[in-house]
């Protein structure tokens, strides 16, 4: 019976790990971002599951329910997860913007292709890899 109660957690772990796998194994950058989303959603379930109380209701006081002795679910994980969701979407937006710029510069969103381009670039420059493309310091003012 105890393990039945943990079944939820285990599925959540599988979901998290699916996301994690996409993040580290897939070369496609957009896929990585989607994977990050899956991973984080998994964490959200985990938190929210912690706060669930059997037979409870959402932690909003309603007059009609107040009369009966109502059990409420724990609101704290919900609050934490609201914050985490926002963090997640912020990270995702940032990542996608980076991907768009990377595609502009490399014409690819596959990590291994980009690595190959970098390597080629290195070889073409005969080791002068780090030569700066920043504005040349002409007549500094």
């Amino acid at each position: 019976m105890k393990y039945l109660a943990l079944y939820n957690y285990w599925i959540v772990v599988i979901i998290m790990m699916a996301g994690f796998y996409i993040m580290i194994a897939r070369h496609n950058l957009v896929k990585k971002i989607i994977g990050l989303g899956l991973f984080q959603t998994g964490i959200f379930y985990f938190y929210v599951s912690l706060g669930k109380v059997d037979g409870g209701t959402a932690p909003i006081f309603v007059e009609s329910l107040e009369a009966q002795a109502t059990v409420y679910s724990n609101p704290l994980p919900h609050v934490l997860i609201l914050t985490a969701i926002v963090v997640g979407v912020a990270t995702m937006a940032m990542g996608l913007a980076l991907i768009v710029r990377i595609y502009e510069k490399y014409d690819s969103i596959e990590e291994d292709e980009i690595k190959a381009i970098e390597r080629q670039h290195w070889q073409e420059n005969n080791g002068e890899f780090g030569i700066s493309l920043t504005a040349p310091p002409t007549a500094s003012s």
């Binding site: 957009v30 959603t41 959402a58 969701i85 995702m92 768009v100």
Partner: peptide
């Protein structure tokens, strides 16, 4: 799971805004 606020946010963000950004990208 009784987390209505979270559900609300996830629906608006995960299903809504995130998808739009992903499509845009």
């Amino acid at each position: 799971m009784d987390a209505v606020d979270v559900a609300f946010t996830e629906a608006a963000v995960g299903a809504g805004v995130s998808t739009i950004f992903l499509l845009g990208a």
